[in-house]
Design a protein around this nucleic acid. Structure first.
Lengths: 210, 210
DNA sequence: GTCTATAATTCGATAGAC
DNA sequence: GTCTATCGAATTATAGAC
């Protein structure tokens, strides 16, 4: 059975999502206007409300698209370490957390820098951004926390919690600085990203074990 | 010779600065309106433009007040380690960097949480916030970088640069999470802050030496 | 220095034709 | 699904009286 797809609509929706991600990344939620989005996306102002309902729901749609990709890549990476009994090492866990977003971003070219900045906004912007974003990522973070607890049984849950939180802060900072002078990732090439992942994993692993 | 001080004006300016810091911290630059500021500060809308000139210059004035306090406290702390020839240890340098903002914030009570969030905005908000803020902090960061270089002569300048940048990201994350559940600093009491400083310095020192 | 009044834009959202 | 037209409200900033 064929699946009906309105091509024009799919293009319009996706075009709005792409431009919205770019503008939210560059100017933040409050600094982005729907009129700015529709101008760059070359669609009608009413199309945004027809497809998404409101500015806030548009933002949620962008977040969900981003979160889905990242979490899928992280879970895929984790399966490489699934041998069974022994808990995965801290290094491997942190690499499974850190490597996927960096690799994804380096594969996306110019859009990768935008994606990186957007992720940064999700962690730092005022209400309602952080709340909308956390909803999409919290379950995944809990899963990683559970695995870290198995790898480091001597540390308390709350200790691991703030250490993971700080590790994410470090990852997000690296992401938002991609391409800038003196950043850990400057050219955003696959080779450079591999080196950056090693250094970054090392940086946070030391902190996590401390 | 007496110094003329218009008390009403001093109050008005300071009141505007206080409320502006609070609203910028809570809602960000774009999300804050001058009308919101004057409503809460109970001053006239024209007073903001008379004293500061524009929304952007008002933000700059808040940043300058905040930066001045932090940098002074850090430099004061550094003088404790000035013995002369031997370079200060990495731990001491990082503690001189990290402790002052956390201690200041815990002394400020409720306003401390606002101050902490405001500092977070300075590092993460879109143009023109980051640019205006970096202008006030960059010289101080360079000084710390120079001292770190003396303490860790085997690491390259660019290596130390991104490591210090990531350490600041960690500090800022701790600041913005003050008072939230599972944060490193929850009650914001002097004793708790002292413990937090030790853990935090340990976390970033391990990463810095790695 | 402080105030009122208002200029000049811009915003998110919606109604209704096609 | 897409469009035009527009509503109602909010924004920064300024002019000018006191």
């Amino acid at each position: 059975m064929k699946v009906k797809v309105n091509v024009a609509t799919a293009d319009t929706k996706e075009q709005i999502l792409n431009v919205a991600e770019k503008l939210f990344a560059e100017k933040g939620f409050a600094g982005t206007t729907l009129r700015g989005v529709i101008r760059e996306a070359e669609v009608n102002i009413a199309a945004v409300h027809y497809h998404f309902g409101s500015k806030e729901k548009l933002f949620s749609a962008v977040v969900q698209r981003v979160a889905k990709q990242i979490i899928q890549a992280q879970q895929r990476q984790l399966k490489n370490y699934e041998n069974g009994e022994k808990p995965t090492s801290v290094e491997n866990l942190l690499e499974a957390f850190i490597a996927p977003p960096l690799q994804t971003i380096s594969q996306m070219g110019e859009m990768g820098v935008i994606r990186a900045q957007f992720i940064g906004r999700c962690r730092t912007e005022p209400f309602p951004v952080q709340q909308l974003a956390e909803k999409e990522f919290s379950e995944n973070h809990q899963r990683f926390l559970d695995m870290l607890q198995r790898a480091l049984p001597d540390q308390t849950r709350s200790e691991l919690q703030w250490k993971l939180d700080l590790s994410i802060a470090v990852l997000v900072r690296v992401l938002t600085q991609v391409g800038k002078p003196n950043a850990l990732v400057q050219e955003n090439s696959p080779q450079e990203v591999e080196v950056a992942i090693k250094r970054l994993v090392n940086f946070v692993t030391q902190g996590m074990k401390a």
